[in-house]
Each structure stands twice: as structure tokens, then as C-alpha cells.
Amino acid sequence: MNENKQKVGLGQEVASLVKTNIRDYMMYIALVVIMVFFAIKTNGGFLQARNIANLINQAGYVAVMSIGMTLILILSHIDLSVGYVAGFSGSVAAILMTKYHMNEWLAILIVLGLGLLIGLYQGILVTNVGVPAFVTTLAGMFIFRGLLNLSLQKTGTIIIPNKGFNELSNGFIPDITTKGDLHYLTLIIGGLLVLAMIYTEIKTRKNKVKYDFEVPSMPIFIFKLIALSVIIMVVIWTLASYQGIPWTAVIVSVVLIIYNYMLNKTRLGRAIYGIGGNAQAAELSGINVKRVTLFAFCSVSLMAALGGILYTSRLQSATPTAGAGFELDAVASCYIGGVAVSGGVGRVTNTIIGTLVIMSLTNGMNLMGIDIAYQYIVKGLIFVIAVAFDVRNRKK
């Protein structure tokens, strides 16, 4: 009798958790469904170690731009210029390294500084001049597209010979030994990630219990830890059986950790959510709305510049077409990842899942040889469904 009650109790708790967090769970379910579908359609090719590493490298530039875009969308603004800011930044990096023979790391620092200046320019137009973000960044899209074409007008595509630069989106972390078929440093990092995840989850649970917040029952909590540990180690084992963890994954992880900490653990993060929820109330409570908004525009342009570096590194060249449609993938990743259309809600960790959804669709359809026209249609439909689901769910 007690066992039946426990089973019923666990069943009800699981149903309640799913109902309460349906938006987040649907995102993960969608990612799993997409991966299983393409794994079947490609006879397992989609889940091969080589393709998983390729997917990570392909998704890197969109991931960092999406993280920056998350802040802008939480504030109820938008930045349509990120695509061509990324393309122009990549062309500047290529010119500095090839024409002026500049060290790649110095060139990267200069390009990141350029991204900050672009964000400062657009942020001042929005906050001080009062030009709407949509108009400012739409103008920026035209301006930086023109600058991209001008910068490559005489040379056309620029091939980048710098090995260190090209390794950013094509290389892998070194191993501690050359013996064996596995990448042992990747396995060690995977084990440390599992331990860090378990420690963080236990600490978070204790803090919630301490302040009388509702937490899942112990069986569900343990199941969650086991499930997350298995997922992490499956991905790690897959990468370790190839060449290890790509440098792209390291860069995206560092950016993700910084932004996640900033949004969840700092006064600035609370101010961003507060402004997104109600800008007038935030202003009355003493938050400097203009300064926070300016920071967000500098941030998104910085991430666009980093995205441009990763994309250019991936191609090992700067091209006049770089940047086309990047902003659409970034915005779609954010909304699929749960950023509210009305602002005030969103998490960068979920944005990364949204990025994986978008890029998994692209990668899988490319493997299947689906025409690019149909790829746009499918991604558009997924985008609309995700936003419609979010709007309906929040109304309920």
C-alpha cells in the first residue's frame, strides 16, 4: 500500500514538474527528437564522433552571438546588425594578419576592441539620442555590410595562413599522452565536469532547502544527477574517441560561464532582468537604465566580433558573404531557448540549447542533402512553433 502511494506520489510529482517547466523540457525534448531523427535518416552518421565535433565547431560562432543577443532581448531590444558586424570583424582580422603581417593574437584583441566600439556607437544612439534599437541596428546592418564589401573589394576572399588563428575553430585541445586510441585529457575533463555538476546541484538544493524553497524529492533528484552524468559522459566519450574537445567548445564554455554568472549572481544581472520586466519601475528603483542598456549593446557587439573571429577561423578565410543571416540564427536560438518575446525572461544556458537545435537542423539537413531553400522553410517553421508555444504557455 505504501509502495503504491509512493509510486503515485512520484508520478504526480513528475507530472507537476513537467507541467511547471514545460517550456524548458520541450526544448530538450525537441533537441533529442531532432538528433534521433537525423541519426536514423543518416544511418548513424549524424551521431558519429567526427560529425559531433564538426557540429560543435559549426555552432560556435552562432552560440557566442546568441549569448550576447540574449541580454539585448531580455531588455526588450534587438540587434539586427550582429551578422555583418561579425562578417566585417572577420575581414578586419584577415587584413591585419595578411596585409600588415600582424600577430594573430594581437589582431584578435584589436578586432574585439572594434566590436566594443561598434557597440558603444550603437548603444549611444539608442540610449542618449533616442533612436529605436530596431532602426539603429537595421542601419548598422547596412553600414557594416557596406564596410565588409569595401574591405574586400580589391582582394576578394582572403585566405588566412596563420595556424594559431585557424586552430580556434578547427583545432582540438592537446592530450596528455599519444598512447592509445582515446583522448585521455578529454575523459579527465569529462569526469571533472560530472563532479562539478553534482557538487553544484547538491549545493543549490541545500540552499533552496535552507530558505524553504520547493525542491524535487530525493529519488527524482538522484535520477536527475544520474541522467545528467550519463549525458555528459556519452558526449565526452564520443569526443574522446575522435580527437578530443574542440577549442571552439572551450571558448563557448568560458563565455557561457562568465555570462551565466553575471546574469544570476551580480547586481548587473538583476538590473538587466528588472529593466526587461518593467523599465519604468527599474528606473524608479534607482537602476541606471541607460548605462545598463549601453553595456548590453557593447556586449552583443563584442560577442558578434568574437563570432566573426570564430567563423573566419572556421573557413580559414574572410569572404564578402560572411555575416548573411547570422542575426536570424542568433535571434532564433534565443527565442527557441526560452527568451520571452516581451522581454524580462531568458537564460544563456537555455540559449545554448536553442543554438544546438538550430545548428543540428542545419547539420542534419546538410548530411541528408536537403536543398537550402527547404532548410530555410523548416527552420522558419520551427522558430514560429517555438515562439507560439512560448506565448501560449505564458498566457496560461
Score class of each variant (00 low, 15 high):
G369L: 14
N288G: 03
D329I: 14
M65A: 12
Y273H: 03
A227Q: 05
A86C: 06
L147Y: 09
A39R: 11
Y25F: 15
W237Q: 03
S16A: 13
S317M: 07
V341W: 01
I56C: 03
M233L: 12
N350C: 05
T319W: 02
V254I: 13
F38S: 01
E13H: 11
A373K: 05
T319K: 04
I95Y: 05
I110M: 04
S360N: 15
L120S: 10
Y211K: 02
I188N: 05
Y28Q: 06
K206E: 14
L193I: 15
L195W: 07
Q243C: 07
G344V: 10
L263C: 06
A39K: 08
I275K: 00
L152Q: 01
S333Y: 02
A330K: 04
N43D: 11
A227I: 11
L294N: 10
G140V: 01
S91Q: 11
N288E: 15
M197T: 15
M218P: 03
M35E: 09
Y84R: 00
V135F: 09
F172K: 10
N166S: 08
L185Q: 06
T136M: 09
V292F: 06
V292M: 06
E201R: 13
L187H: 10
I118K: 02
N260R: 11
I231P: 00
I67G: 02
G140P: 09
V235N: 08
M102A: 09
L182Y: 13
L294G: 03
T312F: 11
I258Q: 13
V300N: 01
V85W: 00
T42L: 15
A332N: 01
L114W: 08
